[in-house]
Design a protein around this nucleic acid. Structure first.
Lengths: 368, 368
DNA sequence: CCAGTGGATGTTTACGTAAACATTGCCTAG
DNA sequence: CTAGGCAATGTTTACGTAAACATCCACTGG
């Protein structure tokens, strides 16, 4: 963990401009202790020769200000480099215009894309996004995050997290703080936005059955994950509905490495001609294992993934997969939480975002 | 963009608990307009029978409070569910305890990992992180982000961005807001934390030369990227220093797809026995192209990547690559910005984080 | 020519916290 | 026995903004 200093020197050289006197025009009463902090409304008001309330009106684009006055105030603002103090504003207005996002480890592509969409969408609505990472997904950590959140300057919260831990979390949010949960279950207790996991999984299985495979094996995600659980359930249900035998479920942990290990097992199953993998990363590992064991994809085994990460088009072979619209999930999270803020006591429920089958080269009609 | 409502009904059913009266004990003067907002220091003080200043002392863990009094105050806090109002706190203290992070598109794995490390590290220092996404990487957007940032409640800013756009950005930050730039150049004008791109690239090229290859081809990242530029420069310099001929540079855009296209080209170059790819995603595409064209890796062609994304261990074959310590970059960004905040007029400079060569199966001694 | 009207602007106040200063009361040293 | 000191606690005030209310003034209609 060493670090290399670029140019070596760390002298304490000059240019300490921190305390340059604000040239006569502006601040009359400037505290000496704190060198920072820009001009306030009062400063602008003084320079523009109006009251601070008029400055406030201009700052907020309110009506009732002459075009002349407005221009004058704007000029004064520019001259002083005025920035509204968001702390004072928040205190006064009683809202922060900020959404908190709780998530642990941005390790999965889905969470990241969702987060990105949340940030973008929030910005469009004039909201900032504060990130609250949960280091280790333990109950304590989750509780801790919620507790820290209480002191955080947020108006509402979006949780991107396997619900299992949320379940028992001692959620003690400040009153009036709304919550929306992404990528989860529990529509009865929270407002949830999620990908249509079941629909996607069903499409994946049907696709393989339609290609003439007798049945479909499933490489599932970790037990703790609700998404994994729902995909696995849908896989089982779809097979049953089609009257097929259900092969034993193989479990991974979302990682390519776990997919590889599972693939080594599946390669030895002669009956296994079609695999539905619960995410693309595991599919990658699975492809490697099958390749190593000489099982050709898609000639001997068809593989379908879930997520449609950008790289999946470049797998060997390019992966057929179920596309998730994470951006839409993120967008709906923001919409949902904002709408809940408007009409306070809105009831819970689940909003599902549809998936889409992306056909590439890893699935084919069953040989023979 | 349709959306499917989970269970179909959207009735306006009951359980409107939003307006439950705060049981007699607490708020005496509660404004009717806003149902939200919890107890304030004054409320706690009244219940505990002390002054609000004492509550403040307890809240901030200051000395000069009897154990008895402290306990009483804490009890009152618990009873009322008191949360310090961070807006008021920020206003009073003149700091938000929040870092702003500007980044566009969390598309690259590196940015994400860096962001994650920043969030974690900031949390350890008692700072929150506010995300400021820049939708399209245009000059206007970047300027806009910086301008929005001005109104944002942040004490300092970390920029994760190709410096090219930062270059000309009309950066007009509020006075006293420090900036640290990650993954960039420009140590002369900003404080920069970055991976040792040059060192990593040099190691990659040398590794291939050591394996007996006459020279090394380079699949570079997009022109606009400083990281890409520095890796390409180091590649060229290392070849020259070793007295080898420098093959023409092939350019991609970081995506696996672009790596595939480049790979189709390189596969037709009979002299090409070793390729240094500027990131792992492009290496993935390259591997696919080489495979399709019947060029075996590593028997015919050796390939080395950059980044060491988790999936690279599961490529076909597992990818030899240069590991970047994004977590360390993020951590150092936070340390740097906090230290700059403490000693205001600190000078600029670049901090480099070393890389590490990870040997896997995609590189081998040159055949023949 | 004057009361009435409404738009433009100013004044007062409160938001919740914490620094600075003020007060209380107890204990100890002279 | 009292002055001095110090620890515990209380009181006042300011942070920057914006809602609520107050004022001013020009113009209109009778």
């Amino acid at each position: 963990m060493r670090r290399v200093r670029g140019e070596g020197n760390e002298g304490q050289v000059g240019t300490v401009d921190g305390e340059s006197q604000p040239g006569g025009a502006s601040g009359t009463r400037r505290r000496a202790a704190r060198p920072r902090q820009g001009a306030s409304m009062a400063d602008v008001a003084q320079l523009a020769g109006v009251s601070s309330q008029t400055v406030s009106r201009v700052s907020n684009g309110f009506p009732g200000v002459t075009e002349d006055t407005r221009a004058q105030v704007l000029a004064a603002m520019r001259e002083l480099g005025y920035r509204p103090n968001s702390a004072a504003r928040a205190l006064r207005r009683g809202e922060f215009r900020t959404l908190g996002v709780i998530t642990f480890s941005l390790s999965t592509m889905g969470n990241i894309r969702t987060l990105e969409a949340i940030a973008t969408s929030a910005a469009e609505h004039g909201y900032a996004v504060t990130l609250l990472p949960v280091a280790v997904p333990t109950q304590d950590e989750v509780n801790g995050a919620f507790s820290r959140l209480g002191e955080l300057a947020v108006d509402a919260v979006i949780v991107i997290m396997e619900i299992h831990l949320l379940d028992a979390a001692t959620v003690s949010l400040p009153p009036g703080v709304q919550v929306v949960v992404a990528d989860s279950d529990a529509g009865d207790r929270y407002t949830v936005v999620d990908t249509d996991q079941a629909g996607g999984a069903r499409d994946a299985v049907r696709h393989l059955l339609d290609l003439g495979h007798d049945t479909v094996w499933h490489l599932a995600g970790p037990e703790g994950s609700f998404a994994a659980q729902r995909r696995a359930n849908a896989w089982r249900d779809t097979l049953r509905a089609a009257g097929r035998v259900t092969p034993p479920l193989v479990r991974g942990d979302w990682s390519a490495e776990s997919g590889y290990r599972a693939g080594l097992l599946l390669a030895d199953e002669p009956d296994c001609t079609a695999v539905f993998t619960a995410n693309d990363q595991m599919a990658l590992g699975l492809l490697r294992a099958l390749h190593e064991r000489g099982r050709r994809v898609p000639d001997d085994v068809s593989v379908i993934g879930f997520d449609d990460i950008p790289e999946s088009a470049s797998f060997l072979p390019p992966l057929t997969t179920i596309h998730q619209d994470f951006a839409e999930v993120g967008r709906l999270c923001v919409e949902g939480v904002l709408s809940k803020m408007r009409q306070d006591g809105a009831e819970h429920g689940t909003t599902l975002v549809p998936t889409r089958l992306v056909r590439r080269a890893s699935t084919a009609r069953r040989a023979g």
